[in-house]
Design a protein around this nucleic acid. Structure first.
Lengths: 157, 157
DNA sequence: GTAAAAATCACCCAAAAGTATGAAGCCGGT
DNA sequence: ACCGGCTTCATACTTTTGGGTGATTTTTAC
């Protein structure tokens, strides 16, 4: 519908509105201070200033963030018999997403859904959705089973 | 990243259109009020265009690039200093009884209270009582916290 | 540009978990 | 015999969890 179209391109529309408002503002100023036509340099400077800002805004809005990978060495104590490195392949096999993994981690730390929601600045419902998908993918029925399974498959510490 | 920019060229095109509309409006206003010379509008438009580009260039060139940081934890394996035998003293300190310990064990295995009751041939209510006392003694509020605490204190595997 | 995946949030409902309180039987120690 | 701790169970109640469904938005991929 029209609403969807509007919401989808709200950035563009917003930008267009800004341009229009700016234009009329400039025109109004021009009409008001017609006497100051000799102060053309100031006017041009203002335009330059404003549009430079607009360009900056545009650039910041349109660029996608660069991905920077930081490798952090994490000290892990473990039993001599088994080595802890299985996780990545298992995570990929189960098709766990980043958020799901994050939620699993916090579940294993003993947090309730409400606490997880607060920690991640999300709504309770969102956490429920994530945990539901998590249980589906891990083929378990409860958070405690998820913990057990997660530790067994070495996808959490 | 270039790919992403190309995929969003529509924004830039729309921006161009906005500029054109802007100029058109200026022209219209000029015809309406017959105040300014053509040279000024063209000049202003050019300034706006050029400085928008400059703003983009500035933003891309001089700002610290937006960085999406992905932290990859690389495990560094260390020899385990202590062997798993701590449990007894901690159990004594917390004053956990046999049944409570048993229930904790089964909770950590991911069993529900109902399943634990069936496993131990007890009623669901009894398991609830045990788990409640367990949580009290361990100073936790949920089974997941009990698992976390239990593993941390080495009272369960 | 479109399609898929991921992430977000909402509402409803049922099951499980957890709290509070009371009570009964057992067992070891004084 | 009495006390205290352990175990067992019950009832009633509140909170949390989990399932199902649907929607929107953002991101990613092709």
């Amino acid at each position: 519908m029209d609403f969807k179209l509007i919401s989808r391109h709200k950035h563009i529309i917003l930008y267009g509105i800004c341009l229009a408002v700016l234009l009329f503002l400039l025109k109004w100023l021009e009409l008001r201070f017609i006497i100051l036509s000799h102060a053309f340099e100031i006017y041009a400077g203002a335009i330059a200033f404003v549009f430079t800002g607009m360009g900056i805004w545009l650039a910041l809005k349109l660029t996608t963030p660069k991905v920077k990978t930081i490798v952090v060495e994490k000290e892990v104590y473990l039993a001599q018999t088994e080595v802890f490195q299985q996780n990545d392949s298992e995570i990929a096999r189960l098709g766990l997403s980043g958020r799901e993994l994050e939620v699993l981690q916090l579940i294993a730390e003993g947090l309730s859904n409400q606490q997880i929601a607060e920690r991640l600045f999300l709504s309770l419902n969102t956490i429920k959705t994530h945990s539901s998908r998590l249980f589906e993918k891990m083929e378990v029925k409860s958070r405690t089973q998820a913990i057990e399974q997660g530790k067994r498959l070495h996808i959490i510490a």
